[in-house]
Design a protein around this nucleic acid. Sequence first.
DNA 1: TAAATAGTGTCTATCAGACAATATCGT
DNA 2: ACGATATTGTCTGATAGACACTATTTA
Lengths: 224, 224
Amino acid sequence: MGNLLFPLVSADVAIFSIGDGALQVLLVQRARAPAAGAWALPGAVLNPQSDRDLEATARRALRDKISVEVPYLSQLRTFAGADRDPRGWSLGVLYYALLPKNRVQAVVRSKVELVRWVNVDADLPALAFDHAEQLAAARSALRERVREHALPLHLMPEQFTLTQLQKVCEIILAQRPDGVAALDKGAFRRRFAKSADIVEIPGAFERGAQRPAQLFEVAPDFRF
Amino acid sequence: MGNLLFPLVSADVAIFSIGDGALQVLLVQRARAPAAGAWALPGAVLNPQSDRDLEATARRALRDKISVEVPYLSQLRTFAGADRDPRGWSLGVLYYALLPKNRVQAVVRSKVELVRWVNVDADLPALAFDHAEQLAAARSALRERVREHALPLHLMPEQFTLTQLQKVCEIILAQRPDGVAALDKGAFRRRFAKSADIVEIPGAFERGAQRPAQLFEVAPDFRF
DNA sequence: TAAATAGTGTCTATCAGACAATATCGT
DNA sequence: ACGATATTGTCTGATAGACACTATTTA
């Protein structure tokens, strides 16, 4: 142990979703050593025989462990060194993805390992390896992208109102569990005059005890 | 070949500099197979025995091949797959760095391999492996960072004038070899009222056949 | 009508781009 | 004085934040 000639290569994925009005991430409880019983980001060790590239490794991990197909995987950063895995020199490539929670039957389907959605800014348990650091990097990259005006549309259901979208942006931008990053309604809506990312669904409205709200959907070619 | 159980792991570095009024990158001519004789980004294969992490691998490559110590290495992206190296499944982590050309005696010192500064937007030869793609990614990341108002201060000499700094920004922002991205002088200078990245050197001026220009230096804690 | 949320309008401070005006050197 | 570049100032259109106003539904 610790003296491998080749490093252990793996791909890990931070899958974010919205639940209970908070940003959540999918964690798995490791079944096998090392770190058996500890919570971790879903991931897999590279298999050069079967994986065309590293994104394939990441997708395989999601398929096998939690039966999930994500629309869009984004590579974020590579963590490497002698100290991050007890088995020795290792290298982990971190991906992140956004997914509406209802698209994951994962929590039910997975038989191999325990799976759980966890509030990123609150309930976080201790994580195996350097996954706490990786998750923090993914969390702040997500915040950064929304801050620079990218829309987290892959977190939204098929149809959504502008108010719902704004709430999700505010959740992501918030720095602390309770802290709300209140966005201005006027300014937020002004953006969509110029953006081609979302499309109004003619005649579709969300109804409640108030004026109906126009429903929107994601433009077909949207990425991120 | 092509059936290794473990991937070949390496770190490659795109070192940028300014020369001949253009953006240049340092290339080495490979001495050994594979791709002997081809030009490539300087890089090294990971040695788990000696490298603490991947940045250490990258720094070792620069030290060994071209006797260079860069102040700041930034990890950009990881390229991996079965097809990028004839030896089989491989994984390459790309770093980039900025360096004033005069800080590199590399072209002289290197005995192992031929070393050359090449104009990124013009003279580029064919590159080994997927290094053309890697270089393109590094080049556009650099442009992107300057576009979003980061200052390429590590490309500047110890002391420099605002006009010189502006010229460098324009070179990086240019999209085509000839195309100049003319920045407005007034707007460019206005930024430094707010930025703490550069510091005026009191009493130091660049002289010529015109009004002397105030010299500046990089603030001590600057990164990138 | 009241409550609730959707959606729009307006005012203002700030800022970037354009461009003009002034400053200060070497020759 | 002239050429050359440095440095500063002004004008204007665009925009984001703040905030108020109107609209449309259910109860």
